[in-house]
Structure formats: C-alpha cells, structure tokens
C-alpha cells in the first residue's frame, strides 16, 4: 500500500488533467497538497475533490518566479518543508519546423522546462525540503523519446526534462532528494481533447492506433507518480518511466 501521510507535496498544473489526478490520488493516500495553477476556478474544483487536509491553493502562473518563490517560502514557514514536487504544468504546440520560431521555443520551454527546474531550485534549498526523503517527479512524454511530425518544440521540451532530471538526481542524491521522469503516451486530458479537435479524424485514429492498449487516463499516470513520491521508491532516482499503453513498444 502506498502511503503519503506526513508528506507535503507541491503540484503544478493541478487544475486539470494529470496534475488534478495526481493531487486527488495523493490526497487520498494522506498527502498534504500545495497546488499551483493559473485558473482559480478550476483549481478550486480540484481542491473540492481532495480528501480534507491542510491543503493550499496558489493561483499564479508557474513562470511568475518571484510569486512562486514567495508562496513556497511562506508555505514552508507556516507548515513545514516539502517531501515532494510534481511538475505537471505544460503547454503543447503542433507546428512544423519552419513556423517554430525562437519565440515559440521560449514560450513552450518557459512553462515545460524552465519553470520545472526553477521550482526544483527553490524546493532544493536547505530548509525547503525534507532531508530524509524528498521526491521530485517531472511529467515528460513519450514524445521526449520519439519524434513526431510537427512536434519539434514540444518533443524537445519534454526531452530536456529527461536529461535535467538525471543531472538533478546525481547532484542531490546525497541530500536525500530523488528525481525521476514519467513519460506518458496520449491520455484523456483537456490538452489532448484540444489536439483531437484540431486534427483530422484520420490523424486522430492514427494516434489512437499507436497505443495498443488504447488511450490512457490521467489516473493511470497518477498511480505511477504517487508510487515515485512514496518511500516505496526510495531506491529509484534518475530514472525514466514510460507509461503509454504500448506506444513505445512499436
């Protein structure tokens, strides 16, 4: 049984999709959540589905680093250090290379990558993390391993998380901080619904066909994330976990 009692966990992108499911499952497993997202109303909807505990909501953009830093410091001072950080915030872009400008890369990397490591930097400061067992989990993607037409910006951002996570794992192993990546295939989230609404039926079916076990659900991913957050995963760091219904097996 996975037990997250007495763990304070910071989750970005908690207002929808994987971030929401991670928050709900972690709360059911006893964790105390600090959730960050831009959309206050949707964040509140996640909060309403949590098992009651001393949870906190932070309505702000993950790239507003000064605010995020202040919120984390205040939260640590009031309620204690963090035992976990899950970076689920992410934005998607489907663009061919010729339209993938420096501006597009910066926009996507800011949310998907830079904020992941900036928040990790804040969490990894002495006093902000639990020195006995802290776990950081980055939500990457199978597209961090495999290419797909029109996904150069998104794929490279998700791939950047893989290498960064390994470096972080090595740098902080002696301090009791583990760092791992989860690489989901296509799961039923708002982001994917938006993608499916924009592509042809043929392209949609081709994506579904690439997943032998079908499209996943955010709760499939949340289970793996909560395992990595738990002490059961105490010997796991610098690892990448593909969870994709068989997408990567082809």
């Amino acid at each position: 049984m996975i037990d997250l009692r007495n763990k304070r966990i910071l989750v970005t992108g908690a207002s929808s999709g994987i971030g929401r499911e991670v928050s709900i499952l972690a709360s059911n497993l006893g964790a105390e959540l600090v959730m960050i997202a831009r959309n206050t109303q949707r964040l509140q909807e996640t909060y309403d589905r949590l098992k009651k505990n001393n949870h906190e909501l932070i309505s702000c953009d993950v790239t507003d680093y000064l605010k995020v830093n202040d919120y984390i410091k205040t939260s640590v001072n009031q309620s204690g250090p963090f035992s976990g950080f899950v970076h689920c915030a992410g934005i998607d872009k489907t663009l061919p290379l010729k339209a993938s400008t420096n501006k597009t890369f910066k926009e996507v990397f800011e949310t998907n990558v830079f904020s992941a490591f900036e928040i990790s930097r804040i969490i990894c400061q002495k006093g902000n993390y639990n020195p006995f067992h802290t776990s950081i989990v980055f939500i990457s993607s199978v597209l961090g391993l495999k290419g797909q037409i029109g996904r150069i910006v998104y794929s490279s951002s998700k791939s950047a998380l893989l290498a960064g996570s390994k470096a972080l794992a090595l740098e902080y192993a002696t301090k009791g901080i583990r760092s791992n990546c989860v690489l989901p295939g296509v799961v039923k989230t708002e982001m994917i619904s938006k993608l499916f609404n924009n592509i042809t039926e043929e392209a949609k079916n081709s994506i579904i066909y690439k997943h032998p076990l079908g499209i996943g659900s955010p709760s499939d991913v949340a289970s793996l994330v909560c395992y990595l957050l738990s002490d059961k995963a105490r010997w796991i760091t610098g690892a990448d976990y593909v969870i994709d219904g068989g997408y990567n097996a082809k």
Binding site: T94, L95, P96, K98, A99, I149, G150, T200, A203
Partner: peptide
C-alpha cells in the same frame, strides 16, 4: 498533413 500544418502557420 505537414503542408496543412504549414498553411495553418
């Protein structure tokens, strides 16, 4: 499909 993406862009 790639040229459609390009036209959209």
């Amino acid at each position: 499909s790639l040229s459609v993406m390009s036209m959209i862009a």
